[in-house]
Nucleic acid binder design. Structure first.
Lengths: 119, 119
DNA sequence: CTTGAATCTGACACTGATGTCAACTCTTAC
DNA sequence: GTAAGAGTTGACATCAGTGTCAGATTCAAG
């Protein structure tokens, strides 16, 4: 599929898709004229990328992480994360954990205010 | 206490504390010479502000929300949120909910990679 | 006093993903 | 072929919180 369709199906702007490619997160074939042509699996990959962005990972970390995922669906076996990467990801995991805790606390704060206004 | 101590105790930079004040999130008395003097309750407030920032609320929303909290400890009774504010906060609540879901998904992704490398 | 540490204000930079615009090229249907 | 729509690259802007620096002032202790 081309970039417009991928953008629609993932709700991610064409601008961002090109950015992902430049950051090495997303690959595409090119038509003879230079237009990007995406495999079907790109949809899942873009969604995954968005999730990881939402989790606060920067594009560099995502780029390292992606080859180790098993959802590639392009026949390539997932790489095994290097010890160094595992350490990085463990740190990220802890950060995400803390973030979840903070989000829950904040949600509770909102709930309190909402409830005291409604109840 | 003065700004340096508050910064240390909250692990928030002096720069950010001044920014919070300019955004109406934090108040301080001033010494005759113009230096900020904070009440003890500022510590809790700053930590709460940081949590709300971490939850993705912008300073404007936080400024509206803070008067409705009951932890002020400065004798002021908490305000009741206006219907408009309740609507805003409900939207934020939903956003936070979605974000928590994404974070959990991302954490699972990391766990998979980590486990497959370690196990 | 004086001196050094702390604080003040204001301005500018950065980060990193994304928006937006311009000028050009490709694709596709007629 | 041609016109309209889609895609290309590149550059600049934005957001919001934070870092950082400069130059001036204040505080606290000797």
């Amino acid at each position: 599929m081309r970039i417009g369709e991928l953008a629609q199906r993932t709700a991610v702007s064409e601008r961002s898709l090109r950015y992902y490619e430049k950051q090495g997160l997303l690959t595409s074939e090119r038509t003879p004229g230079g237009h990007r042509e995406y495999a079907e699996s790109a949809v899942d990959r873009v969604i995954r990328i968005q999730e990881l962005f939402a989790a606060g990972l920067c594009s560099a970390k995502i780029a390292q992480l992606l080859p180790c995922l098993r959802d590639t669906a392009d026949g390539a076996a997932p790489e095994t994360a290097s010890p160094w990467l595992v350490e990085q990801l463990t740190t990220e995991r802890e950060r995400i954990d803390r973030m979840i805790g903070e989000l829950i606390r904040s949600r509770n704060v909102l709930d309190e205010v909402i409830e005291s206004a409604i109840g």
